[in-house]
Design a binder for these strands. Structure first.
Length: 424
RNA sequence: GGAGAAAUGGCAGAGUGGUCGAUUGCGGCGGUCUUGAAAACCGUUGUCCGGGCGACUGGACCGGGGGUUCGAAUCCCUCUUUCUCCGCCA
């Protein structure tokens, strides 16, 4: 969430920037300004009443000590009215605080100045591309046919066990999946990330910290009996490690990487365009997360983009990097780069990574702060994350792009992990 | 799952109704001493929200929430977590 200071001091700027996300903040911001000043007024009021009350209590205490049968009763009588006033005023204060908070959390993050305006995917900006479009046979198959032909992923079995969107990986398919996970993790560790293996079920506070709750409640699977959520991404547990944490500036940046399965309900988003591995309810993903000094978060973002680019390019997949326009960005992000790989048989670009800087938006919800050495005050850190990478669409692209008459060829970098060079 | 005990500042650990935001030790930071370091000694050391240009000042926080009381770290209720014993178990 945005900080109240920013809204208070630069409200026109806030409103202006949010237009890039096609969000009309005018009314909400005005409401926030009013609630905020009323909040402060109420606080000053309750504080001074409370102060008065504390003084009387202390006086009674002193009287009791000096002379237990003194006129303490008289002083005590005075407190009743005061107590009522405090009660009613602090009830008002609490109500205003709740209302204020509700308004503030409804505001999305401000987009970075480099974010292009726009409504949707068509307005995204292609930053650069790489890799070579490879020649594939004229009778090339889409991946959903390939997985059946080589019997490496079984959707029907998944439907039997769970339901649509929960595929079963088998044989060389399972091994390829595991190879990709290991490869991605190893590359991240080489780049200085610490490997984390977090819980895949989180509580409400964690869901709120990274911004999934309350707005995107429907995206996550909810375990009602225990009020817990299956994670839609490792971002949630890994970033929440730093909830309510004050870091030492010397320890920044924090760089973590985690593999987890990810669970998404994807309610209402099914259709012909999401066949096969294109969209699933459960999928594997390796995620990189950084917590940085506010002055260095955009350097970190570039570093993460470079890391992801290295992965995609080492797999020999044609790719392009896209800077999302305001309308296509997430609620929490200030700047997002998407990575797309070319799916040769489907003849379309598939999103395989999304790398974002959230600046202090998540950190403010998380209360993730840091302190400069010798500095008395804490400041909000910046948080970033990116997929490195999401597996299913990578697998889809690998299968389609590397299909040959004799089988599916495994890219060189993966062979040490798969132990085989071709899927036949 | 059953029975019992506990939850205090970065850590350890006092505090059972009245200047307790909290004794003390360790750790951290600053200083004295030293060529440097260690030791010793001295000082300092939580977070959040207000008010004030500022010196400074008011309020809240002792696992979370609620209650009793003029006054709660201390008493009561409730939730959560941890530990011990029993049961179950990959």
């Amino acid at each position: 969430m945005l900080t109240i200071n920013l809204i208070r001091e630069k409200k026109d700027f806030v409103i202006e920037r949010l237009k890039v996300k096609n969000f009309d903040a005018g009314e909400i911001v005005e409401k926030i300004i009013l609630l905020d000043s009323s909040r402060r007024e109420l606080q000053t009021g309750t504080d001074s009443l409370q102060s008065e009350m504390n003084q009387i209590s202390r006086k009674i205490g002193a009287m009791m000590k000096d002379n237990p049968v003194s006129g303490a009763d008289e002083a005590r009588a005075k407190t009743h009215l005061l107590k009522e006033e405090i009660r009613s005023l602090s009830e008002k204060l609490a109500a205003v605080e709740d209302a204020l908070r509700e308004e503030i959390i409804s505001l999305p993050n401000l987009p970075h100045e480099s974010v292009p305006a726009g409504r949707g995917a068509d307005d995204n900006l292609i930053v650069r591309d790489g890799g070579v479009m490879m020649e594939i046979p004229s009778d090339a198959l889409p991946h959903w046919d390939l997985i059946r032909k080589y019997d490496i992923i079984d959707f029907e079995l998944g439907i039997k066990l769970t339901g649509a969107g929960f595929p079963v990986y088998k044989g060389k398919g399972a091994k390829l999946e595991r190879a990709l996970i290991s490869y991605f993790l190893d590359q991240a560790v080489k780049a200085g990330y610490t490997e984390i293996l977090p819980p895949v079920v989180v509580n409400e506070a964690s869901g709120f910290g990274t911004g999934q709750l309350p707005d995107k409640e429907g995206q996550m699977y909810h375990i009602g009996a225990d009020n817990l959520y299956l994670i839609p991404t490792a971002e949630v547990p890994v970033t929440n490690i730093y909830r309510d944490v004050i870091l030492n500036a010397d320890n920044l940046p924090v760089k973590n990487v985690a593999y987890t399965p990810c669970f998404r309900r994807e309610a209402g988003s099914w259709g012909a365009h999401v066949r096969g591995l294109n969209r699933l309810h459960q999928f594997d993903k390796v995620e990189i997360v950084q917590i940085t000094h506010p002055g260095h978060s955009y350097e970190a973002l570039e570093e993460m983009v470079t890391h992801v680019e290295g992965l995609v390019s080492s797999l020999g997949l044609p790719y392009r990097i896209v800077r999302l326009c305001g309308g296509d960005m997430s609620f929490t992000s200030a700047l997002t780069y998407d990575f797309e790989v070319w799916s040769a048989a489907q003849k379309k670009w598939l999103e395989v990574s999304s790398v974002s800087n959230f600046e202090s938006f998540q950190a403010n919800r998380l209360k993730c702060r840091f302190r400069e050495k010798g500095d008395k005050h804490t400041r909000l850190a910046h948080t970033l994350n990116g997929s490195a990478l999401a597996l299913p669409r990578i697998v889809a692209a690998l299968l389609e792009n590397y299909q040959t008459g004799s089988g599916i060829v495994i890219p060189d970098v993966l062979i040490p992990y798969t132990g085989f060079k071709i899927i036949t």
